Deep mutational scan, measured.
Amino acid sequence: TSIVNVSSSLNVRSSASTSSKVIGSLSGNTKVTIVGEEGAFYKIEYKGSHGYVAKEYI
């Protein structure tokens, strides 16, 4: 489990790309479970499925 480190919110994306669809967002200090990594993104558990967040904010 890791913590989201942002002051406002962090986009959760459908794939490991800044141009991919935003499927949701997480607020600062939210706990997330990392299940993998791809480039500059972590794959996380998100709403019963998976999403991707930028590593620099975790």
Rank of each mutant, 00 (worst) to 15 (best):
S2V: 15
S2F: 13
I3Y: 11
I3T: 10
I3C: 15
V4S: 08
V4Q: 08
V4A: 10
N5Y: 07
N5L: 12
N5H: 12
N5K: 11
V6H: 10
V6S: 12
V6L: 11
V6N: 08
V6Y: 05
V6D: 07
S7E: 09
S7D: 09
S7L: 12
S7C: 15
S7Q: 12
S7P: 11
S7T: 13
S7F: 08
S8P: 08
S8G: 15
S8D: 10
S8C: 15
S8F: 13
S9A: 12
S9G: 11
S9I: 13
S9C: 15
S9E: 10
L10I: 15
L10E: 04
L10H: 05
L10P: 07
L10Q: 05
L10R: 05
L10S: 06
L10W: 07
L10C: 15
N11F: 12
N11I: 15
N11M: 14
N11V: 15
V12N: 00
V12S: 01
V12E: 01
V12A: 01
V12Y: 01
V12C: 04
R13S: 04
R13L: 15
R13W: 15
R13Q: 10
R13G: 03
S14D: 10
S14T: 07
S14H: 10
S14V: 11
S15P: 01
S15V: 05
S15G: 12
S15H: 14
S15Q: 12
S15Y: 08
S15C: 12
S15D: 09
A16Q: 02
A16M: 04
A16R: 03
A16G: 05
A16T: 05
S17P: 01
S17K: 07
S17T: 09
S17A: 07
S17Q: 06
S17Y: 07
T18V: 12
T18W: 15
T18G: 10
T18E: 13
T18M: 15
T18A: 13
S19G: 10
S19Q: 11
S20E: 02
S20H: 04
S20D: 03
K21C: 11
K21M: 12
K21N: 10
K21R: 13
K21E: 12
K21H: 10
K21Y: 08
V22Y: 06
V22C: 08
V22E: 03
V22P: 05
V22Q: 04
I23P: 01
I23T: 03
I23F: 03
I23Y: 02
G24N: 02
G24K: 02
G24C: 06
G24A: 05
S25Y: 14
S25M: 14
S25K: 14
S25G: 06
L26D: 00
L26E: 01
L26K: 01
L26N: 00
L26R: 01
S27A: 14
S27F: 10
S27D: 13
S27M: 13
S27P: 15
S27R: 13
S27V: 11
G28A: 15
G28I: 14
G28S: 13
G28Q: 12
G28P: 15
G28D: 08
G28T: 11
G28K: 14
N29G: 15
N29D: 09
N29L: 12
N29P: 09
T30F: 10
T30N: 06
T30R: 06
T30Q: 11
T30C: 11
K31P: 12
K31S: 11
K31T: 12
K31F: 13
K31C: 14
K31Y: 13
K31E: 10
V32L: 08
V32G: 01
V32I: 11
V32C: 05
V32W: 05
T33N: 09
T33C: 12
T33S: 07
I34S: 01
I34A: 01
I34W: 04
I34G: 00
I34N: 00
V35R: 04
V35E: 03
V35H: 03
G36K: 04
G36M: 04
G36I: 02
G36L: 04
E37M: 09
E37A: 07
E37Q: 08
E37T: 07
E38V: 09
E38C: 13
E38P: 01
E38H: 07
E38Q: 08
E38F: 07
G39N: 06
G39W: 04
G39I: 02
G39F: 04
G39R: 04
G39K: 05
A40N: 12
A40H: 09
A40L: 10
A40P: 09
F41D: 02
F41T: 01
F41P: 00
F41H: 03
Y42F: 09
Y42L: 05
K43Y: 05
K43R: 10
K43D: 01
I44L: 02
I44S: 02
I44T: 00
I44G: 00
E45S: 07
E45I: 14
E45A: 09
E45Q: 09
E45L: 14
E45Y: 08
E45N: 07
E45K: 10
E45M: 12
Y46M: 03
Y46E: 01
Y46N: 01
K47C: 14
K47Q: 12
K47F: 10
K47W: 06
G48T: 06
G48C: 07
G48M: 05
G48L: 05
G48K: 05
S49G: 15
H50Y: 15
H50V: 13
H50Q: 06
H50S: 06
H50W: 15
H50R: 04
H50I: 14
G51P: 00
G51D: 00
Y52Q: 00
Y52I: 00
Y52T: 00
Y52C: 02
Y52S: 00
Y52N: 01
Y52L: 01
V53D: 00
V53M: 04
V53C: 03
V53I: 13
V53T: 01
V53F: 03
A54L: 15
A54Y: 11
A54G: 09
A54H: 08
A54D: 08
K55C: 03
K55N: 02
K55Y: 02
K55M: 07
K55W: 03
E56T: 08
E56C: 15
E56F: 09
E56P: 05
E56K: 14
E56D: 08
E56M: 12
Y57T: 07
Y57D: 15
Y57S: 12
Y57C: 15
Y57M: 10
I58K: 04
I58S: 04
